[in-house]
Design a protein around this nucleic acid. Structure first.
Lengths: 241, 241
DNA sequence: CTATAGTAACTGGTATTACCAGTTGACAGG
DNA sequence: CCTGTCAACTGGTAATACCAGTTACTATAG
């Protein structure tokens, strides 16, 4: 282990790959607003010619942009920019996360921390546009309960919480919670239901959601916060069994 | 906009790309523990032959693994698995984040939320191994203060908080905070110092760290928590100006 | 024998070319 | 006007080649 003389005069030379340069230019164009969501990206062949590089290099850059969730690639169609979306990234990483012990419980605790903060930041009164998706999620959950469709119920549950956070004004909180919620969603779709299968538990969930919705609609943010807190605590207890 | 008839009987056919299959197999091998950090990954040519696909396809999968921070690729050497590391991902995404208004402030607020929770979860008493890196970060910060080295000071600050979170026992909190701290680090290295340049402010930071460290060493977690809270509030106020 | 330099066999990085499959739009024929 | 066909795109994949860097072995000079 004597190789690292670490002569302070000489720093290792960082070699950058060319896909990183392409990536850099793209990100710069997006962050400066030159490229906006919905814009169509030139074809791979055009890009290769513009950058004076080969098509594989362009493809590697696009691959990364795809995983980051910054572009949407349609085979035969083209590539389009979109609002950054953490879904694709999550779907790759999720299995690595859930292989850990007690990850489900930790995730719930973390979600509690974030979600309560999100509700504190909700504007008061809540706009009708913010309330609408929450109401829709509740309706969906009610239907799922009647049909005894466990997975649909769980997804509706997630949708409710997602619409809650979308109403908050913190960009970071939205992104982080989006990440957490995506993890839950991934777990549910993968069949590892972190959720409740018993009918009465699902009914309780629905009931909680309805009450939270009502309090928010009435402008009682404090009440809603307390309800959400106990709601998540209940879920946590159920999951622990 | 009438194209989406959304006939419930027919679901769109999802076509998966072959790099996703390769990715899936890799992630599965890692999450089941067959592949462990430090293991060497076969060469691209071997993999291509094993998977019966072309080398570009293998490369695209490896590219993604590299961005996720799951492997380390040495040109001319080979690829090695490592503990997942969010750094590469952050360095791509960071510019997109910091292009938003008031992101710095939001980041501080979010960090406050997370970090206080992390200190609540600290084991009590704190082990010497957990305290040691914190002490080292304080020493580094003291040196930077004397040398009037702003960037080194900021990085030492980050190092202190990073070592704090590493002592907590929550895997998620560690990962999320690691992500946040990486964002700060990226900002500092990029010259967009979210930090303080005035000598007396830096001295105050150092003083706060020393007190927090002392309280933690003495086992007074509650005191440390209060100190951290006011410490971060102070930083936030300074950043607001 | 040892240490050096040289060399051959790797590795990943990039480029080139080609073909396939899916999409799109124009255009001709009903 | 609708419809089916076809040509010109698009991205997905493959095969091949060459470059540059790493590594380890080897032969040579001391």
């Amino acid at each position: 282990m004597e190789e690292h003389k670490s002569n302070p005069s000489f720093k290792p030379i960082a070699t950058r790959k060319i896909y990183q340069y392409i990536l850099e230019q793209f990100v710069h164009l997006v962050s400066t607003g030159v490229l906006k969501p919905g814009d169509k990206i030139p074809s791979e062949r055009e890009l290769a010619e513009s950058f004076k590089v080969s098509r594989p290099s362009v493809r590697e850059a696009l691959r990364v942009l795809e995983i980051i969730g910054l572009i949407d690639i349609q085979p035969g169609g083209g590539a389009y920019l979109k609002e950054m979306e953490l879904g694709p990234f999550i779907s790759v990483v999720a299995p690595l996360m859930f292989s850990r012990d007690r990850f489900d419980l930790e995730l719930l605790e973390f979600r509690e921390l974030i979600e309560i903060r999100a509700i504190e930041l909700l504007p008061n009164p809540l706009s009708a546009e913010a309330l609408e998706p929450m109401g829709r999620a509740i309706g969906e959950m009610r239907r799922a309960l009647l049909d005894n469709d466990v997975e649909a119920g769980a997804l509706a549950d997630i949708q409710f919480h997602r619409s809650l956070l979308l109403a908050s004004n913190s960009f970071i909180l939205q992104k982080v919670l989006e990440l957490v919620v995506s993890l839950f969603e991934h777990a549910v779709r993968g069949g590892r239901s972190v959720v409740l299968e018993k009918q009465e538990d699902a009914a309780q969930l629905l009931h909680d959601h309805e009450r939270i919705y009502q309090e928010l609609a009435d402008g009682n943010t404090d009440h809603a916060k307390k309800l959400l807190s106990s709601h998540l605590a209940m879920v946590k207890n159920l999951a622990r069994t």
